[in-house]
Design a protein around this nucleic acid. Structure first.
Length: 747
RNA sequence: GGGCGUUUAGCUCAGUUGGUUAGAGCGCAUCGUUCACAUCGAUGAGGUCGCUGGUUCGAAUCCAGCAACGCCCACCA
C-alpha cells in the first residue's frame, strides 16, 4: 500500500491537490473536452460565477455559493459535458467606495480631502484601484482554497476594458432605442456619501418622531419635517373634503416664522382627509409626493424651492435674501433646525399641538443608515415604465419566467419576481462617486443639453463646432454593469476568437443568493434578453443566507462573521462544503454550526479509512480481477450472486444521487451519498465481508474484493462533487485507476 | 397596507405527486480499544409533526381559519 496512506486523514494536502488540478488545465473546457470532440453543440454546461465584491475577504456565504456551483460543475464535468465555470470579480462601485472611505476615516482623512487636492479624482481612483486589486488577489486565493474548479484563464473583472466596452455598447443601444434618458427628477440622496441611490438601495426603518400641528392662518397642518416649511409652496386638501371646500383655490395671507407670506390652497386626490387635519403642506423640492403634486398643479402654484442643501443643512439665504429672521436658521443641520424651529414657532403661537409619539417609516441609506434626503437632480435613468420600455425590457423578462424559459428555484421566488417586475419603476443608473465605470457622455460647453455618447473625447463638438467637450462626471450604478455579466463575460473572450458566447450562452444555471433577486437577477434577465435576444440562463437557483447560531445575519459590525479560511485550515474545505450543503434547501437560510463541520471532517477521515482498508485487503488480488486495458471492470459480470445484489443496490444509490443533483436537490444528494458510504458500505457491507476476505474460498474472496474495490472507486466519483479533495487524495493512491485525476473520471 | 416564508426529537434540519410502527446529524445514556477508523463501533432513551376545523378508508403531507417568529415590497404628510 502507498507509503503515505497514513492515519488519520490530513487535510493540509488540499492546497497541493488544487495546484495539481489547476496546473493540469482541466478546469478549462478547451483542454478537458475540445469543441471538436463535443458530441453536440448543446452538450455543454456553463455557469457564470457571481463575481464577489473585490473589497474584502470572502465570508461563509460565499463558501455556500462556491460549494453549490462546484458541485454542479464537477458533476457535469464527470458526466462528460463540455463544462465551463467562469470566475470573476466585481468592482462593486458604491459598496467598495464605502469600504474604502471607512478605511480613509480610520487613517484620519476622507474622500473629500483627497478630492480637493490637485488631480484629486484621479488620485482617489488610483488608490481604490490598488486597494481593489489587492483584495481581488486575496479573494481568488480563497476561492481556490474552497476547491472551486473554475477556469481561471477566463476570469473577468467588471473594469476590464473588454467588459467596459460591452457595457458602453449596451448603453448606446438603449439610448438609441429611447430607453435611456437624462432628466431632473426627485431621487434618493445620501447626505453622508454625497451620491444618489436607486430605490433598491434604500432601507426603511420605523422611527418615533414628533408630529407638529402647525398653523397656517385659519388652517392647521400636521408635519414631521418642520425644517422644510420654508420650502412650502402651497397647502393641499382632498377635493371632496367638506371642511375645506371654501378654501380651495384661495390664497391665504398667513403669519410664518420669517414673516407674513401668501400661500395658495389646492385640491388633490392624494391627500388623505383622515390623516392629521386633512391639510398638507406642499414642499415640491423635498418630498416625492409633493413634487408629483406640483407637477399636477404647475399652473396654480410655485415650483420647487430648495431650502436644504446637499449636506442636509438649511439653505435659506438664497431664497430669502435680506430676511434677517431667516438668517438665524441658515446653515443649521436638519435635526438641530427642527428643534429650534419648534421652539420659536411655539413661542410665536404657531404650533397648535405636538404628538410626540408619532411612529412612521423613514427611508435610510442602506449602508450608513443616515436618513435619505429626497432631492431634485439631473440624473440618468433607464426607462422601465413607458409603453415601449415595457415592450422591450419588462415584458420579455416577465414572459421568460412565465413560460418557463427561465426556471426559478425555489418556485415561490417566482411570485416575488413577478410582483416586483410588474411594479418596476425607472432606474436611476448614475452615481456621484469616482469608483465606477464612467458614463460615456460628452457635453457641449455652450449648451449642456447637447451631448454625444462616446468612450473617448470627441475631436470636435458637433453642436457648437468650437468647444472642447466636457466629460460627464457621474459613473454607472454597479448593477448596470453586473446586470450584463453573463453575456459580457462570454462575449469578452477575445482570445478564443469570440466563440465562448456561441459555445456557452445561454448559460445553464445562475446560482446566487435570494437577497439579490431584484438587484441582479431581474436586471440580468432584462438586459440579457434585450441585448442577445436569448435568456442569460435557464435556471436560477437561489440559495439561503448563512446565519449564526442566534439566526442573526452575519455582518462585520455585529462581529459574527466567520472567516472560511480559518475553518478550512482547521477542518478542511471538504468538511466546510458538506456542512454548508447538507440541510440547505433553496431560499431557506442555513445556520452555521461548527459541530456540523466537525461531523463532516470525521466523515473525510472515515472515507480515508474505508479506502485504507479496502485497498489493503484487496491489493494483492487486484491484478487478477481488474484489467488495465480495455474493459476496466470486465470481471464485474462474474460476481457472486450476493455481490451482484449489492452492486445493484449501489448503482441505484448513485443514480439517485445523480438525479437529486440534476433536480438541484443538493442537500438530499449529499445526504444519500454520505449515508450510504458510512452506514451501509462501511458499517454493513465491509463488516460483512471481513470474514470472507480472510477466508479461503478463492471465488468468494475475489468476488468480494472486486465488489469492495468497485464500490470504493465509484463512491469516490459519487462523492467527488461534494468533497473534491479527500476523494482526489484517495484516488491518487489507488493501486489501479483509469485516469490521471478523479476530477476527469466518468460518472 | 399588501405579499412571502417558517413552525416535525434537547439543538439544526429532511420528509418530491396523502399510504404500513415519522427520519438523519449533533447532543445525551450504557457498553466496547489485538483485528481500517475513538475524527471509531454497538445498543438505547427521546416527537399530541404550532393550534382549530374540514376533505378522505387513511393527513406531518390536501383545504379553510387562527397564532407565533422571520423576511420582502409599498409615495401616506
Amino acid at each position: 500500500m502507498n507509503q503515505d496512506f497514513l492515519k488519520p486523514y490530513d487535510h493540509s494536502q488540499e492546497e497541493k491537490i488544487y495546484h495539481r488540478w489547476e496546473g493540469s488545465g482541466f478546469f478549462n473546457p478547451d483542454k478537458f473536452l475540445p469543441r471538436s470532440l463535443q458530441k453536440s453543440k448543446k452538450d455543454y454546461f456553463s455557469i457564470i460565477m457571481p463575481p464577489p465584491n473585490a473589497n474584502g475577504s470572502l465570508h461563509v456565504g460565499h463558501a455556500v455559493m462556491i460549494a453549490l456551483e462546484d458541485i454542479l460543475t464537477r458533476y457535469f464535468r464527470l458526466k462528460g459535458k463540455r463544462t465551463l465555470w467562469l470566475p470573476g470579480a466585481d468592482h462593486a462601485g458604491f459598496e467598495t467606495q464605502v469600504v474604502f472611505e471607512k478605511k480613509l476615516e480610520k487613517e484620519g482623512t476622507s474622500r473629500f480631502e483627497i478630492l480637493n487636492q490637485p488631480q484629486g479624482k484621479e488620485r482617489l481612483f488610483q488608490m481604490i484601484w490598488d486597494f481593489t486589486l489587492n483584495n481581488k488577489k486575496h479573494m481568488e486565493d480563497q476561492i481556490r482554497r474552497l476547491g472551486a474548479s473554475c477556469d481561471w484563464s477566463r476570469e473577468k473583472f467588471t473594469l476590464d476594458p473588454e467588459i467596459v466596452k460591452i457595457v458602453y455598447q449596451t448603453f448606446e443601444k438603449l439610448y438609441k432605442d429611447g430607453l435611456i434618458y437624462k432628466d431632473k427628477r426627485m431621487v434618493n440622496w445620501c447626505i453622508k456619501h454625497q451620491t444618489t441611490l436607486s430605490d433598491l438601495e434604500t432601507k426603511y426603518e420605523e422611527r418615533k418622531d414628533s408630529l407638529y400641528y402647525i398653523k397656517y392662518g385659519p388652517l392647521t397642518v400636521a408635519t414631521v419635517r418642520l425644517e422644510t416649511i420654508f420650502g412650502d409652496t402651497a397647502l393641499a386638501v382632498h377635493p371632496k373634503d367638506k371642511r375645506y371646500q371654501k378654501f380651495i383655490g384661495q390664497e391665504l395671507e398667513v403669519e410664518t416664522l420669517i414673516g407674513k407670506r401668501k400661500i395658495k390652497v389646492i385640491a388633490d386626490e392624494i391627500v388623505d382627509p383622515h390623516f392629521g387635519t386633512g391639510v398638507v403642506k406642499v414642499t415640491p423640492a423635498h418630498d416625492p409626493d409633493d413634487y408629483e403634486m406640483w407637477k399636477r398643479h404647475k399652473n396654480e402654484i410655485a415650483g420647487p424651492c430648495q431650502v436644504i442643501d446637499q449636506f442636509g443643512r438649511l439653505d435659506l439665504l438664497r431664497h430669502f435674501p435680506g430676511n434677517k429672521k431667516a438668517q438665524k436658521y441658515h446653515g443649521l443641520k436638519i435635526s438641530q433646525a427642527r428643534e429650534i424651529i419648534a421652539n420659536d414657532m411655539q413661542s410665536l403661537g404657531l404650533i397648535e399641538k405636538i404628538d410626540f409619539d408619532y411612529k412612521h417609516n423613514i427611508s435610510l441609506c442602506y449602508k450608513c443608515l443616515t436618513p435619505l434626503e429626497p432631492r431634485i437632480l439631473d440624473q440618468w435613468f433607464l426607462d422601465l415604465s413607458s409603453p415601449q420600455a415595457k415592450k422591450k425590457l419588462v415584458l420579455p423578462a416577465l414572459e421568460a419566467v412565465k413560460k418557463g424559459k427561465i426556471k426559478i428555484i425555489p418556485k415561490f421566488q417566482e411570485k416575488i419576481y413577478f410582483h416586483w417586475m410588474k411594479n418596476i419603476r425607472d432606474w436611476n443608473i448614475s452615481r456621484q462617486i469616482v469608483w465606477g465605470i464612467p458614463i460615456p457622455v460628452w457635453y457641449c460647453q455652450e449648451n449642456e443639453k447637447n451631448f454625444v455618447i462616446s468612450q473617448d473625447q470627441p475631436n470636435h463638438c458637433p453642436f457648437c463646432k468650437k468647444c472642447v467637450m466636457k466629460k460627464e462626471e457621474d459613473v454607472f450604478d454597479t448593477w448596470f454593469s453586473s446586470g450584463q455579466w453573463p453575456f459580457a463575460t462570454l462575449m469578452a473572450q477575445k482570445s478564443k476568437n469570440g466563440s465562448d458566447f456561441k459555445d456557452f450562452y445561454p448559460t445553464s444555471v445562475m446560482e446566487t443568493g435570494y437577497d439579490i433577486l431584484f438587484f441582479w437577477v431581474a436586471r440580468m434577465i432584462m438586459l440579457g434578453l434585450y441585448v442577445t435576444g436569448k435568456v442569460p440562463f435557464k435556471v436560477v437557483y437561489l440559495h439561503g443566507l448563512v446565519r449564526d447560531k442566534d439566526k442573526q445575519k452575519m455582518s462585520k459590525s455585529k462581529g459574527n462573521v466567520v472567516d472560511p479560511l480559518g475553518v478550512v485550515e482547521q477542518y478542511g474545505a471538504d468538511a466546510l462544503r458538506m456542512a454548508l450543503v447538507v440541510g440547505n434547501s433553496p431560499g431557506q437560510d442555513v445556520i452555521y454550526d461548527e459541530n456540523k463541520i466537525r461531523g463532516y471532517r470525521n466523515f473525510s477521515n472515515k472515507l480515508w479509512n474505508i479506502a485504507r482498508f479496502v485497498i489493503s485487503s484487496t491489493e494483492s488480488l487486484l491484478d487478477q480481477i481488474i484489467s488495465q486495458k480495455g474493459n476496466f471492470w470486465k470481471n464485474l459480470s462474474k460476481l457472486e450472486k450476493e455481490d451482484k445484489k449489492l452492486l445493484k443496490e449501489f448503482q441505484g444509490i448513485k443514480k439517485k444521487v445523480a438525479l437529486e443533483i440534476e433536480k438541484f436537490r443538493f442537500s438530499q444528494a449529499a445526504e444519500i451519498a454520505y449515508h450510504y458510504v458510512w452506514h451501509r458500505f462501511a458499517d454493513e457491507i465491509i463488516e460483512g465481508k471481513k470474514k470472507i476476505l480472510s477466508g479461503d474460498n478463492e471465488k468468494e474472496r475475489n468476488s468480494s474484493a472486486l465488489l469492495l474495490y468497485f464500490i470504493l472507486y465509484q463512491s469516490l466519483i459519487m462523492l467527488h462533487p461534494f468533497m473534491p479533495f479527500v476523494t482526489e487524495a484517495i484516488y491518487q493512491r489507488l493501486p489501479k485507476k483509469e485516469k490521471e485525476f478523479l476530477m476527469i473520471e466518468k460518472w
